[in-house]
Design a protein around this nucleic acid. Structure first.
Lengths: 165, 165
DNA sequence: TCTTTATTGGCATCTTCTGCCAATTTTAGC
DNA sequence: GCTAAAATTGGCAGAAGATGCCAATAAAGA
C-alpha cells in the first residue's frame, strides 16, 4: 500500500537519515524542527511503508581487503527464458556480486563485483561467472578510480517552509 | 594510518553493522559475544580508522519518486588531462549522479544516474551531461529490473570460533 | 462556524550509552 | 616454561536517549 505522499518534514527526515543513519532521534527531531515523539513516529511509519528499506554501514573497501571493483556486462542466451531466471537467481547468491541489474543496451545484465585483487577476479571469472547457466558473453570493466560513491538519492528540495514571527 | 589487521570479532562487527546500522550497542555486543564496553570501543576505533565510512539509510527509489536508474558510459576527450579533471569535479557536484568511476574498457567513466522518469533523464542528458567539459561520447543503459541491490561487502568468513563445553 | 479527525508536545519510565577502574588475557622476552 | 609488560575485557554508575500515553493544538470537512 504505497499510500502517503511525503511532506516536507518526511523528506527532511529521509535526507538526514540518508546522510547519517545513526542520528539519535533527539538530534533528528531537532534537525527537522519537531519534538522527539512525532519525529520517531514518522520514522517508524516511513520504515513500515517500506520507504526506508534498511540502515547500512558503509565500509572502506580497501580497508577490508577488497581492493578491486569490476563492472561486468553479461549477455545471456535469450530464447531460453528459464536460463535467464536461473542466471538471476545464481547471481543473487554470489557474495562477490554486490549489485546486479537487468539493463538495456549491449549487455543484458550489469553486475558490480568486488574482490581482493586481480588474481581473485580471475578465479571468480573462470571458476564461477563463466560457469553460470546461459552466459554467452562477458565484458569486464575495471574500476581504476572511484570518483563518487554512495551519493545520496536526490530528494526533491526539502526546502524549509518559511515561517513569519 | 591503516594499521590494525582485523580480528574475527572486528569482522563480525562490520558484518553486523553492514546489515543493520541501527543495532543498539547492546544488541551488537551480544551478537559478537562481547560485553557492551569493549564492543563500543571497537566500533569507535573502526570509525576512527576510517574502516567504517558512514551509516546510511537505504531508501526505496520508486517510493521517493526516483523511478529510473541509468548506467551511463562516458568517453572524454583524452589528450587534455585538465578536461578530465574538470569532468570529474563536475560529476561529483551533480545530485543525479549517485556513483561515478573511472574505468577501463569502452568508456572512460561509468556513472549511475537516478532520475524520476524518462523525461527527466532527457532533460538531464541534454541539459547537463552533454554540456560537461570534454565529453565526447555517451552511452545510456537503462535499468529495466533490479536483480540485487546494496549487497553487503563479502567479508572473509566471520566464522564462529568453535568452543568446547 | 462547528464538528470531526489527525498530529503534536510533554511527561514518566525503561533502556541504552559511555567513561572509568580493577581483573583477566595476551604478547614478548628470557 | 615462566615472568613481566601491554592490551583487552567486564562491570558499574551517572547521563542521555527511546518510547508509550494523554491532553492540547492544528487541520479538514460539513
Amino acid at each position: 500500500m504505497p499510500n502517503t505522499r511525503l511532506d516536507a518534514i518526511d523528506r527532511r527526515i529521509l535526507a538526514a537519515l540518508q546522510r547519517d543513519a545513526r542520528l539519535s532521534n533527539v538530534q533528528l527531531a531537532e534537525e527537522v524542527n519537531l519534538s522527539p515523539s512525532p519525529c520517531l513516529r514518522r520514522v517508524r511509519q516511513l520504515e513500515a511503508e517500506g520507504l526506508i528499506r534498511g540502515y547500512h554501514a558503509e565500509l572502506d573497501r580497501g580497508g577490508v581487503g577488497l581492493g578491486l571493483t569490476v563492472f561486468v556486462g553479461v549477455k545471456v542466451e535469450r530464447h531460453h527464458e528459464a536460463e535467464a531466471n536461473a542466471f538471476r537467481e545464481a547471481v543473487v547468491a554470489l557474495p562477490e556480486v554486490i549489485s546486479a541489474h537487468l539493463v538495456s543496451g549491449e549487455s543484458d545484465f550489469l553486475l558490480q563485483v568486488v574482490v581482493a585483487d586481480l588474481a581473485a577476479y580471475e578465479r571468480f571469472l573462470t571458476g564461477t561467472l563463466l560457469r553460470l547457466p546461459g552466459v554467452s558473453d562477458i565484458r569486464s570493466n575495471f574500476a581504476i578510480q572511484s570518483v563518487k560513491e554512495h551519493g545520496p538519492l536526490p530528494l526533491t528540495q526539502p526546502e524549509d517552509k518559511g515561517r513569519s514571527p
